[in-house]
Amino acid sequence: MFNLIRRDVILQKRQLLLFIPFIVFFIIMEANPALIFLVASLIIPFNTYVYDEKVETNILLNSLPYTRTEIIASRYLGAIIYMVLAIGVTSLTLFAFNKPFTMTDIAISCSLFLLFAAFTFPLFYIFKPGYIFPIIMISFLLLAGIGPTIMLFLAEHLTPITDFIFNLSVPALYTGATLGIMIVYVISWGITNIIYQRKAF
């Protein structure tokens, strides 16, 4: 199954040459470090779907000695592995450019990346090829655009919940968030797995 994860690099080796210039561009644009980490994490896992949404790729992968469970597992585990690698490379680049960043930046981008992956990965197996990229782009922009406003609105109007969150100790808050995100990710994995098992090629 590790081969399936490694496959992404072989497929994208040319695009990967653009990886560092891309990060540098964001750094020069003075983007928030959390956003840079997030965008860097997104590149490989989502680029893979340019290939994987094609029927031919699914026919190939399913004709090779892999099970469908392994193919989906490689998506979800691969996303985490590439996220870690992307954060490593981005940290080094930021460091080289003498840009400060905090562990909180990394934690925020990791959480957002995992949540975004958890919500979008199943969609890749539900929608027909060709439709999915516009949907993902629009949902990403929507989330980035109006997401914070919604959160602020909710924070103001659902005061009991806000109070509850603010009353938590910092370790409890972090543990809770980590657990929550892990649960969402695992549920998404399970759903995608069920969808993929039923697919016909």
């Binding site: 081969n3 490694r6 496959r7 072989i10 497929l11 090779l64 000695p65 892999y66």
Partner: peptide, 8 residues
């Protein structure tokens, strides 16, 4: 490189 490691 992609296909070969799939087969023992």
């Amino acid at each position: 490189r992609i296909v070969a490691p799939a087969y023992k």
